[in-house]
């Protein structure tokens, strides 16, 4: 399978990338290419130009900035899974990154590429929602910081505007010991994408849950946080009864996705089960 022809341009700064995007509205940004190239090989995507941002040093880093950890958009899943800073300070992200695709995909695919593509079955969106991350976007009009909770809009659709580039993801560092986190997923057996993924983060003080974030991927057109599940957790002790109750609230939405691997009712059911399993893993 061979993509249709396009021009290629490698840029070395964010400014160059934004400039190039402004000059060609049919251009697309190439980082690892693991969302884009498969679509181009099927000719579902036929951009006029690829702007390769993978070598921009300012997009390829993981840095502790005190209140949050900053991750450059062109950082690979593999790096996030193994980098000392993410492993120590953002274990949820490191763990989720290690579950994305397979090792070869993790070595090439990037966090920025994944969230810009916004595949409903991708892992990052739910994980970033649960972690309370902020997406930093840069365009010709300047820098915007978009909370993950506002970033994902619909099927393969985000708040990323024309000519804009994701530059960084900021993830607040949870206070170790008081936070519990988990990501659990049920995978589609062929593609290994999530049929249902459930990412969870909450504070646990004196055995009581607060500040719960419960986010899903694979379930609806885009990743989302479920307020009903979260409110069933907040203020409650972390017990099997709380977990059962929270799980029963999950998967209640309409427009649940359906495909050959999981019908909507089955997905809704899996959403409950994986809510339970993610929460149970926090019991330990």
């Amino acid at each position: 399978m061979i993509p249709s022809s396009f021009e290629y341009m490698r840029v070395s700064t964010v400014a160059e990338a934004i400039d190039a995007l402004r000059h060609d509205t049919d251009a697309k940004v190439l980082a690892g290419g693991h969302s884009l190239i498969p679509a181009m090989k099927l000719r579902l995507s036929q951009p006029s130009k690829l702007i390769d941002i993978s070598r921009i040093p300012a997009l390829n880093f993981i840095r502790d900035r005190g209140k949050y950890i900053a991750i450059g958009a062109a950082t690979t899943h593999g790096t996030i899974a193994t980098h000392k800073t993410t492993v120590q300070k953002l274990p949820l992200l490191a763990h989720a990154a290690s579950m994305i695709g397979d090792v070869q995909v993790r070595n090439m695919g990037t966090i920025g590429g994944s969230i810009a593509h916004a595949d409903p079955a991708a892992d990052w969106p739910a994980v970033l929602l649960a972690a309370g991350a902020t997406i930093v976007v840069e365009g010709s009009t300047g820098v915007k910081k978009i909370p993950a909770s506002e970033f994902f809009v619909d099927f393969f659709t985000t708040q990323l505007g024309e000519g804009e580039l994701i530059t960084e993801i900021h993830v607040p560092e949870p206070t170790v010991g008081t936070y519990r986190q988990a990501y659990a997923k049920f995978v589609q057996p062929a593609s290994r994408f999530a049929i249902v993924g459930c990412a969870i983060q909450f504070e646990l003080k004196d055995g009581v849950i607060s500040n719960a974030h419960v986010a899903y991927n694979g379930v609806l057109a885009c990743a989302f946080r479920d307020a009903a599940v979260e409110s069933s957790l907040n203020g409650q002790p972390l017990t099997e009864a709380t977990i059962e109750n929270a799980a029963s609230k999950a998967g209640a939405g309409s427009n649940i996705l359906s495909d050959n691997f999981a019908s909507a009712p089955y997905r809704a059911h899996l959403t409950k089960i994986y809510t339970k399993r993610a929460l149970q893993s926090c019991l330990a």
């Binding site: 190439l30 693991h34 190239i37 498969p38 090989k41 390769d52 995909v105 070595n107 090439m108």
Partner: peptide, 26 residues
């Protein structure tokens, strides 16, 4: 062709990648 099977695996800067999903220019 869909970066599923791994028959095209090579090492890029020492890491395994699927060469059917990498452009030569990259």
């Amino acid at each position: 062709d869909t970066s599923s099977c791994g028959a095209c695996t090579v090492h890029l800067d020492g890491n395994a990648v699927k060469s059917c999903t990498v452009l030569a220019v990259q």
